[in-house]
Amino acid sequence: MNGPFDFTLALADDALIAAQRLAEWTTRAPEMEEDIALANIALDQLGAARLLLSYAGELEGAGRDEDALAYLRDDREFRNALMVELPNDDFAVTMAKLFFLAAYQLPLYTALAGCADERLAAIGAKARKESAYHLDHGALWVKRLGDGTEESHRRMQAAVDQVWPYTHELFAADPAAPVDPATLRPAFDEVVGPVLTEATLTQPDSAWAPAGGRAGVHTEHLAYLLAEMQVLHRAHPGAKW
């Protein structure tokens, strides 16, 4: 990654794809109250994505607005980390993704709130409060599922094992960026470790660290997600909605 455009786009795509996945839970959540909670988090991510995409478009200066960036790029042009595009799978996998993403986004947005770029700082200041809420929500469920029933423990551990390798990509060093993701890892570990312990879960010890999202090389899942998300917009070129 280099330059504020790429950096901003990467953050925007993380938020956008996370929102798209979370919104898939609508009408499907384990309890009606949770349907509302997941929609709230999806709305937060979508809101942050829109601010970031709009700003990325301005930085680029090529006249692309939030919708042009969201709907008219192909998967190879998306810069999100692989973790957010992974399928929702069961509720435990979704909570593992939510928890890990929030544990990364909270220190990220917090650092961003103090950065020199005023626009990014403002977005960071707003999104930071939302991330704190997401982290809280993710941690709450990781604990309940980890230390709930035998079945929920088994599922939660499997989910952590499945998602954990994808967390490493979030912290790939980028010293030139407004916030170097590598500097966020200690804050992430500090939050994640104790929650997993309290949840009676084991932190995986996997050396596998799939990556490529920041360079536009994704899993097979992203193209399907985009095909669905973009189909209507692309079917009517130039139309207003």
């Binding site: 956008l16 798209q20 919104a23 898939e24 609508t26 009408t27 009606m32 109250e33 349907d35 509302i36 929609a39 709230n40 999806a42 709305l43 979508l46 809101g47 994505a49 829109r50 995409l53 939030e66 919708d67 969201a70 709907y71 669905e228 998300m229 189909v231 209507l232 917009h233 009517h236 139309a239 909605w241």
Partner: peptide
């Protein structure tokens, strides 16, 4: 909810998601 994933703009997606969420609230 069938159209949230395919909403044709991000603004429409946000409004529709919030609307469907409201309905869950009304149910409760």
């Amino acid at each position: 909810g069938n159209w949230i994933s395919r909403a044709p703009s991000l603004k429409r997606k946000a409004i529709l998601l919030a609307k469907v969420q409201d309905e869950a609230g009304h149910g409760l």
